[in-house]
């Protein structure tokens, strides 16, 4: 499956990926509304670690054997057998955060419920990749993970 890979050598710590992820996961899909007015506040599904010297975006690896799915007590967290995308169904998530405790990449975000990358659900190019100004994020066919 296609996955998002981060290349720290080109990550410039601008963190636009976070802004555009948040926008993509907003209702309005408008970057200014998403950040300034929308309630509840949309959540970016990935985050950038580090500083200007060394930084990189961390997002879900969409593992072949996702620990988050195995840890989920509600069945909200599922790996789509066709696309391979691991999605947390926000309707069903009760916010126990077992998935957060299970993910070895620390890629599931803790909030009232768990939030995670959904690869923009079948968009040709996830928002973070599309808007990365330095191609530090790439969306390519990879092998199997974990």
């Amino acid at each position: 499956m296609k996955r998002i890979y981060a290349r720290e050598q080109y990550c410039i710590n601008c963190r636009l990926c976070e802004c555009f992820c948040k926008t993509a996961h907003s209702v309005s899909k408008d970057i200014i509304k998403a950040h300034k007015t929308e309630k509840p506040e949309p959540v970016s599904r990935l985050f950038v670690e580090g500083d200007n010297m060394l930084s990189f975006a961390v997002n879900c690896r969409h593992c072949d054997k996702p620990a988050c799915v195995e840890a989920c007590i509600t069945g909200a967290m599922v790996k789509d057998p066709e696309t391979g995308i691991v999605i947390n169904n926000s309707e069903r998530c009760v916010g126990c955060l077992s998935c957060v405790l299970a993910c070895p990449y620390g890629a599931v975000k803790a909030g009232n419920i768990a939030y995670k990358c959904d690869l923009c659900r079948g968009e040709e190019m996830p928002a973070c990749v599309k808007n990365c100004p330095n191609r530090a994020l790439i969306y390519i066919e990879g092998g199997s993970e974990r």
Partner: peptide, 13 residues
């Protein structure tokens, strides 16, 4: 200010 989302990219860049 109406457009600024305070993402801080300008600061870091």
């Amino acid at each position: 200010k109406d457009r600024c989302i305070k993402c801080g990219a300008c600061v870091r860049q």
